[in-house]
């Protein structure tokens, strides 16, 4: 992979120049949290943001969007023809791992038109990160990324090492080649190696997830799950903020008067009671605890069966967002019988 250097003072100028390609998005502070937003004022860009509340999936499958328009006489048309190109800056490795998982889920068996259409228009500029006490990407080996981005920025104090990850990334870079330094010296190399060693040791939260599929299987009928089930608010927050949760529902909205109707697709959560309810009234997961179990089975076991790796990427969003402290770290510890600090 080809790499360049970009002096930090050029960053904002460079990002702004990328508006020639499309909208430039990045993490911006909103109260205590960060949100991926379209950048108009580059001074607002939060380079230290760790986990924008909604992950990258919001670009690829928005929380709600129209799939079809239809008229009363039975004619219908695809509601999503084109998506404006967005260049998303500041995406961390764990999120890119989630993206790679979504790519497999949405591109392989029965490619999803809506995902593909959004995906094609979403260009990614990765940015290295320093973990906080909620990050556990190293435990899942998602703390580093070699593919899935167009440009990859590694923060080496006064400059960024910029990796070119795709042909589109090459276009982005060449757009302002004048700002980049092509010469990588052995000093740069050493600095990079040192940085990696240092950064990989910054993880405060380390989970041993090696035997999770078996543990999920063996713990299935244990009483401890009931306590977790009683605690869960069934609010669905975990599904909304998890970078690999992409369940959805569909609803038809009729048009009023001469307006066309629309078919809308929107995020759903398996934590909601209605999720597995079938016509006729039978609910396959009536009990809260069964829904919590499904969620964690799907994160920590099912994806391993399907894709050879867990769906969890260690981003820490569930730790940061569940109002009653149910999250991957907590569940892992409980299931493994480890003491959980309240």
């Amino acid at each position: 992979m080809k790499a360049y250097k970009l002096k930090k003072e050029y960053l904002k100028e460079y990002l702004k120049s990328l508006e020639d390609f499309g909208e430039v998005w990045g993490p911006i502070k909103k109260g205590e949290i960060d949100v991926y937003e379209k950048i108009t004022d580059y001074s607002l860009l939060n380079l230290n943001a760790l986990r924008p509340i909604l992950p990258l999936k919001k670009f690829l499958i928005p929380p709600k969007f129209n799939t079809f328009f239809y008229t009363k006489d039975g004619k219908y048309e695809n509601a999503l023809k084109e998506v404006k190109r967005k260049i998303v800056f500041g995406v961390h490795p764990c999120e890119i791992h989630a993206l790679l998982t979504l790519d497999r889920l949405y591109k392989e068996r029965y490619p999803d038109y809506y995902y593909l259409t959004h995906r094609k228009s979403t260009w990614i500029i990765a940015l290295s990160c320093v973990p906080d006490d909620k990050c556990f990407a190293r435990s899942l080996n998602t703390h580093f990324v070699e593919e899935g981005f167009d440009l990859g920025f590694t923060d080496l104090e006064d400059y960024y090492l910029v990796w070119v990850g795709s042909s589109e990334g090459d276009d982005l870079l060449r757009h302002r080649l004048d700002l980049f330094d092509e010469k990588i010296t052995s000093k740069d190399l050493n600095r990079y190696i040192e940085w990696r060693k240092w950064r990989d040791n910054q993880y405060q939260l380390n989970l041993d997830l090696t035997a999770m599929p078996d543990i999920m299987e063996l713990s299935y009928d244990l009483e401890i799950w009931n306590e977790i089930g009683e605690r869960c608010l069934s609010c669905g927050t975990c599904s909304m903020i998890c970078p690999t949760c992409t369940c959805f529902n569909i609803a038809d909205h009729l048009g009023i008067d001469d307006e066309p109707g629309r078919r809308e697709r929107f995020w759903d959560s398996c934590m909601l009671k209605i999720f597995a309810l079938v016509a006729g009234g039978h609910n396959f997961r009536e009990k809260r605890v069964d829904r919590v179990k499904l969620w964690y089975t799907h994160k920590l076991k099912a994806f391993i069966t399907e894709f050879g790796k867990p769906a969890c990427v260690g981003c820490g969003r569930c730790i940061a967002n569940c109002p009653v402290n149910i999250n991957v770290a907590e569940i892992t510890k409980i299931l493994k019988g480890e003491e959980v600090k309240k």
Partner: peptide, 24 residues
Amino acid sequence: LERRMRCGMGKCGHCVIGSIYTCV
């Protein structure tokens, strides 16, 4: 078997049982 389904293509998640999608 019968499950709730929205897509039929292993995407919407409604028919998931453990590791499998009833629809695919």
